[in-house]
Amino acid sequence: MTALNRRIRTRVGTLAVADHGSGEPVVMWPSLFSDHRLYDLVTERLGPQWRTIRVDGPGFGRSTPPRGDVQPATYAAAVVDLLDELDVDQSFVAGCSWGGQVAAHVAVQSPNRCRGVLMMNTPLAPSVGGHRPLIFGTRWLGSTSFWGRGVARSMIAEPTTRAHPGRVADFVAAFRSFDRTAAATTVQTVLARSPGLADVLPRLRAPATILMGAQDRLYPPADAMAQAQRAVNATVAIVQSCGHLAPLEAPQSVVDALESLRDRAAGPADARR
């Protein structure tokens, strides 16, 4: 898959970006413990009719490390900086887990720039404390394959591990390229200091889709559904045999969701003709 080819200065530092294609633009923000490569399989399936703008989130990959406790609302403003620099007027915004929080904030903060939002495996409720093993493990072991294998077991569903061991191996191998200190800062912020999306979801006006993994052990659908229903303009879908990383585990479901969002976003414009 084509690699990083842009470095773009934003209000949160420099974002490393893989920008490819010339069709419908979609910004893709990754989950914790991953970078732009999380969306390789999705990008392959979307094809040339989409322009995929895949970001390395600060703390993982080649973007500038986070400057302390940076919340998703601030990263959302940086996405707009990125769109400005790339001369993109409107874009779909997709995010997995932490990235889903960023995507939701983009849609609310800058509705004129966001055609639709896709949230995958996203923590919707506040995260205050908890997740201590992931926080301390990242602090001490965060840039090792050993830690990558542990995180993979907590995030990736067993059916994916059996059917696609190569995908899991690639996910684990990426850990060796992460800055442990930067990753630990991001993980602590997201897993222990996040206000959640309770106040954001009711303000979504762009077409939205919320994808949940039926086997997501970190954020099970049964726990997330009440919050998801606060997004009155969103479609909620549960992806079977999927854990916490839909772009890696169920890339075709992600492609289908983006294409459906594109159709929904086009509908009102067509109706006005």
Rank of each mutant, 00 (worst) to 15 (best):
Leu4His: 04
Leu4Phe: 04
Asn5Ala: 09
Arg7Thr: 02
Thr14Phe: 00
Leu15Pro: 03
Ala16Lys: 08
Val17Met: 13
Asp19Ile: 11
Gly21Val: 09
Glu24Asp: 11
Val26Met: 09
Met28Ile: 04
Trp29Val: 15
Pro30Val: 10
Ser31Pro: 03
Asp35Val: 01
Arg37Met: 03
Pro48Glu: 09
Trp50Leu: 13
Arg51Ile: 08
Ile53Thr: 08
Arg54His: 08
Asp56Gln: 07
Gly57Ile: 03
Pro58Ser: 05
Pro58Tyr: 02
Gly59Glu: 04
Ser63Trp: 05
Thr64Pro: 04
Pro66Gly: 05
Pro66Asp: 04
Arg67Cys: 04
Asp69Met: 10
Gln71Met: 11
Pro72Asn: 10
Thr74Leu: 08
Ala76Gln: 09
Asp84Glu: 13
Glu85Asn: 09
Asp87Met: 11
Phe92Cys: 02
Phe92Ala: 04
Val93Gly: 14
Val93Trp: 12
Cys96Ser: 15
Cys96Pro: 06
Ser97Asp: 10
Gly99Lys: 12
Gly100Glu: 12
Ala104Met: 12
Ala104Asp: 13
Val106Ile: 09
Ala107Gly: 11
Val108Cys: 04
Cys114Thr: 10
Cys114Met: 06
Leu118Lys: 02
Met119Ser: 07
Asn121Ile: 00
Pro123Leu: 11
Ser127His: 06
Val128Ala: 11
His131Thr: 06
Arg132Cys: 03
Pro133Cys: 13
Phe136Val: 14
Gly137Tyr: 02
Arg139Cys: 05
Arg139Gln: 15
Trp147Asp: 07
Arg149His: 10
Gly150Ile: 07
Arg153Ile: 06
Met155Cys: 14
Ile156Pro: 09
Thr160Val: 10
Pro165His: 10
Pro165Leu: 14
Arg167Glu: 01
Val168Ala: 11
Ala169Cys: 09
Ala169Trp: 06
Asp170Lys: 12
Phe175Gly: 11
Arg176His: 06
Ser177Glu: 14
Ser177Arg: 08
Phe178Val: 08
Thr181Tyr: 00
Ala182Pro: 00
Ala183His: 02
Ala183Pro: 05
Ala183Met: 07
Ala183Val: 07
Ala184Thr: 09
Thr185Cys: 05
Thr185Pro: 00
Gln188Thr: 12
Leu191Thr: 13
Ser194Asp: 15
Asp199Ala: 15
Leu201Met: 11
Leu204Ala: 12
Ala206Met: 08
Ala208Lys: 05
Ile210Pro: 03
Ile210Asp: 05
Gly213Pro: 00
Asp216His: 02
Tyr219Pro: 01
Pro220Glu: 06
Ala222Arg: 09
Met225Leu: 13
Met225Asn: 06
Met225Gln: 13
Ala226Gln: 12
Ala228Arg: 12
Ala231Asp: 15
Ala231Pro: 13
Val232Tyr: 12
Asn233Lys: 14
Ala234Arg: 08
Ala234Ile: 06
Thr235Arg: 00
Thr235Glu: 15
Thr235Ile: 08
Val236Tyr: 06
Ala237Asp: 14
Ile238Val: 15
Val239Gln: 13
Val239Lys: 10
Gln240Cys: 03
Ser241Tyr: 02
Ser241Pro: 00
Gly243Pro: 03
Gly243Met: 01
His244Gly: 02
Leu248Cys: 07
Leu248Ile: 15
Glu249Cys: 07
Ala250Val: 01
Val255Leu: 14
Asp256Val: 01
Ala257Thr: 05
Ala257Asn: 02
Ala257Tyr: 02
Leu258Gly: 01
Ser260Gln: 04
Leu261Cys: 06
Arg262Trp: 00
Ala265Arg: 07
Gly267Pro: 00
Arg273Gly: 09
